[in-house]
Amino acid sequence: MGCNVYSIKQVVEMLDIPSVTLRAWENRYQAVTPERTESGYRLYTQENIEDLRWLKEQTEKQGISISHAVRLLKARKENPAAEGPAGAVGTPREAFEKMKQQIYSALYEFQGERANALIDFGFSMYGYESMFHQVLVPILIRVGDAWEEGSATVAQEHYMTHMVSNRFYQFFHLFPVYAHLPKVLAFCPEGEHHQVGLLLFSLFLRKNGVEVVYLGANTPEGGVVAMLETQNRIGAVCLSVTDKELLPYCKELITRLQAIRPGIRFILGGKAYEAAEEPVPEAAEVIGVPAERWQEWFDYSFTGARNQR
Rank of each mutant, 00 (worst) to 15 (best):
R42C: 07
W54S: 11
I49F: 10
T37G: 14
Y41S: 06
K56H: 12
T37Q: 09
A69S: 14
A69H: 01
Y41N: 11
R28Y: 04
V70S: 01
L52C: 08
V32W: 02
L43E: 06
Q62N: 15
E38R: 07
E35D: 06
I49L: 15
R71T: 05
R71P: 09
G63I: 02
E50I: 07
Q46T: 12
S65Y: 03
K61D: 12
R42I: 11
E47K: 14
H68D: 08
R42K: 04
T37A: 15
D51P: 06
S65N: 04
W54G: 09
I66T: 06
E50Q: 15
A69R: 00
A69W: 00
E35G: 05
L55M: 11
D51T: 14
Q30D: 13
Y41R: 13
E57V: 14
D51V: 07
Y29A: 03
T59D: 11
S39V: 05
Q46D: 14
Y44M: 01
T33V: 13
E38A: 15
Q62C: 02
Q30Y: 03
Y29P: 08
Y29K: 04
T37Y: 07
R36T: 12
T59H: 11
W54M: 13
I49W: 03
Y41D: 07
V70F: 02
G40Q: 10
S67A: 13
V32N: 03
Q62T: 11
L52D: 03
L55F: 09
E50S: 14
E38V: 04
N48H: 03
E47C: 07
Q62I: 05
S67V: 10
G40W: 03
Q62G: 08
K61R: 11
D51E: 08
E47I: 01
S67M: 07
N27M: 10
P34I: 01
E26R: 00
Y44H: 02
Y44C: 00
K56S: 12
S39Q: 15
N27F: 04
E35Y: 04
Y44R: 02
S39P: 05
A69G: 06
N48D: 15
E60K: 15
K61T: 14
E35A: 14
R28K: 10
R53P: 02
N27V: 05
I49E: 05
H68V: 06
I66G: 10
Y44P: 00
T33K: 14
G40R: 02
N27Y: 05
L43S: 08
L52I: 10
N48V: 02
E26D: 05
A31C: 08
N48F: 02
E50K: 12
V32C: 08
R42V: 05
Q46L: 13
V70Y: 00
R71C: 06
Q62V: 02
Q30W: 00
